[in-house]
Structure formats: C-alpha cells, structure tokens
Amino acid sequence: MADGIVTLAVVMAVTAAIGWWWLRRQGAVRTRPGTDARDWTDQGVLLGARATFVQLSAAVCAPCRATARVLGELANAHPGVTHRELDVDENLDLVRELSVLRTPTVLVLDPAGREVARMSGVVSRRQANEALGTVDHQMIDDGRTRT
C-alpha cells in the first residue's frame, strides 16, 4: 500500500504536467514561415480574398464542432474570410501530406493558398482573431519585400 501511494502520487504529477502542457497548446497560433503555396481546388476550397481557414475534423471529435462555430462566425463577420471544414477520413492523403496528427487542426491560408499559420485543438474567438491578424501582417510584410 505504501508503494501504491508513491506510485499514485507520481501518476498524478504526470497527469497534471500533461494537462498543463495540453491546455497551453489548445488552439495556439503557430506561424509557418516559408511554406509554399498549394493548389486547393481538389479539396473544393475557395480561397478568400483576405484569409482562408481550412479545418480538418473528425466525427469522434467534439471540439471540432465548437471550433467550426467560432470560425464560421469569423468568416461571416469579415468579408474576404472563408472557412472550409474537411473530414479527415475523406482527406487522408492531404492529412499525410500536411503532417496533421490530431483534430481539429486549422490551416490558416493567405489569398495565394500559402499556409501562414496553423492551430490545433479547440480554437477560441481570441485565437481565431489572432490568426487573422497573422495573415494580415504577412501580407503587409510581403508588400514591403516586393517594393
């Protein structure tokens, strides 16, 4: 029993550490500099003039619904922003090509179809806005480089 108490304490500490790390990652916007543009027509994704959110979802993923709601609202509120949800079962090749490991994973695309940022886990309204800001910044930076 004394051994059991020590074991349980260790297991609980590991659980707490994983929980903390997992919560921190939820929906965090990770920028993806230097990603090449990609043709999205096969997936039926119509690129928005400002930004496109491609969400990879699965039926066994409840946070995918919440994320779809947040991104759908964002797309409705901002002209030029589109949201497209794809099922991982029907897009396994794409999932492998893009090294997607969990759902929901959201790819944030610029108007050229280039992945500017990526989020995985449930996305909050604040994080969705942050991702949109990332695309806008990227466009400004690109404009500067060109001139």
Binding site: A58, V60, C61, P63, V88, L92, V95, R102, T103
Partner: peptide
C-alpha cells in the same frame, strides 16, 4: 478528448 488525439493517429 481522446478521439481528437488518437483517432487520426490510428487512421494514419
């Protein structure tokens, strides 16, 4: 959500 973390891995 285990389905979120594991389903796609198993599928892949």
């Amino acid at each position: 959500c285990l389905g979120c973390e594991l389903y796609l891995l198993l599928r892949r």
